[in-house]
Design a protein around this nucleic acid. Structure first.
Lengths: 150, 150
DNA sequence: GTGTTTGCAAAGTGTTTGCAATTTA
DNA sequence: TAAATTGCAAACACTTTGCAAACAC
């Protein structure tokens, strides 16, 4: 399986290392800085936090004259996610979204445009989670505020 | 399109009508009580609140000796959802879940078993939503607590 | 009878994968 | 040059759809 071919890497680095150029990001997580990965990393991380789907990112890459296949975009998004550079967000049954902001926060989803926006964690207060089944722990809490035209 | 063939119906009835047998539910929302719809409605509503995928419900129907195609299960789940008898929950990129509890509440999702559980609305307090873009309103707030083996 | 619903098989969508060719270290 | 990565096209899982036959009213 292609996705399994990546070597071992230190995930912790990914989130603690100060923001740096794409090359360092890749090195930091032990992914070989290939032309495709570098270009995708640039598109993803050289600007503000963003939310992309595979198709969106592929389109951007092509527009930027980067030759890369859609399959590689998918694989790369998953590699970045496994390495802790991205977070996958499940908001839409039709497609997967990836968020370049990997810190704790929540989301606003526009059901019309299907765009995703961040909500700072502090904007939402969660009290009292229910008791969990024995031996289980919370892996993540997602809050999705779905909005539409009034 | 098949799903468009349903006649007009009063959605409001669905949620205010006291629980009743499957037949009344269907009548209440203006869906013809066919053999398949009656059987599926029984499976869905004759027990406690539950969360099903199309495959799960189809499997149950077959085990209960109800002859129904998977396509009809899909169509029926959507008709019930459009009629307000079910709510669709997006938690898993792989498949759609439908919840027989259509009142406001949240969810616990076991990432191992992929089972969904309800969390009463009162168990979670949401303060201060961020300001919405002009002319937009909240259509729904989903809170998903993802849990896994400790 | 007339219009609705069903089942089937085919089509559709987003995503993953096997493998030969290419690239990286 | 050995191992990792890529692109392609085929395969995939889930879901939707067109249409003729069956059914509900």
């Amino acid at each position: 399986m292609n996705r399994m071919q990546q070597p071992a890497r230190d995930t912790a680095l990914a989130t603690t290392r100060p923001y740096g150029p794409a090359l360092e990001r890749l090195r930091g997580v032990g992914l070989r800085p290939t032309r495709q990965r570098l270009a995708l990393a640039k598109l993803l991380f050289d600007t503000d936090d963003r939310h992309v789907t595979a198709e969106m990112l592929h389109g951007e890459a092509l527009r930027a004259r980067v030759r890369v296949s859609l399959a590689t975009v998918y694989n790369t998004l998953h590699q970045f996610t496994d390495a802790g550079l991205l977070r996958e967000i499940v908001v839409d049954a039709e497609r997967s979204y990836f968020d370049t902001n990997v810190s704790n926060h929540h989301h606003l989803f526009d059901e019309g445009t299907r765009y995703l926006y961040d909500i700072p964690e502090a904007d939402i207060r969660l009290d009292s989670l229910p008791p969990l089944p024995d031996g289980m722990e919370v892996s993540r809490v997602d809050v999705i505020v779905r909005i539409k035209k009034a």
